[in-house]
Amino acid sequence: MNIFRLLGDMCHLVAIIILFLKIWRSKSCAGISGKSQVLFALVFTTRYLDLFTSFISVYNTVMKVVFLVLAYATVYLIYLRFRSTYNSESDSFRVEFLLVPVAGLSFLENYAFAPLEILWTFSIYLESVAILPQLFMITKTGEAESITTHYLFFLGLYRALYLANWVWRYHTEGFFDQIAVVSGVVQTIFYCDFFYLYFTKVLRGSGKMTLP
């Protein structure tokens, strides 16, 4: 554990809590892509199956359980509790265009051809593209509430901090996870355009982020 990894995990946790509380308090999931949240729930489910097979640390186990519970609670809020506020017509990204290539790639490029290993690889690849329905929704509607942009900012910061974590681990431990690093770089790139808009529009302006 290093400072980049710890800060990265905390940003990830903050992002998920921001989104959950936004929906819970406003009793509305307007502007939120339910599809992205289902994909993230799928990411955690397929990656954290090792909760049953290996123990890393109390921190690791607790965080995994918290992420899983919050991911499913968010999906529950969007699709069941506050379903009437969900903008399904704007959330029109075709997730099969992500799921099929990601599933195919996880069978082709993995560390070992075993069920748990393929599911773990699938989760890594899927996480790198899971935010695309949300970014697509913002592009389509042309705006996002500031709280939604704060959620995306912390999610992007988590990714950037994980990159720093891998650089650190490579130099201090010789640790290198090729699948995670390549996917992580791809994932972080998706946030670059958003980061630019966040700093130029949201922080300098006020309220909603509108696209040019």
Binding site: D9, S54, N60, K64, F67, E109, Y111, F175, Q178
Partner: peptide, 10 residues
């Protein structure tokens, strides 16, 4: 890809 790293991250 050959070497499998430890899965100790989230």
């Amino acid at each position: 890809i050959t070497k499998m790293p430890l899965k100790d991250e989230l």
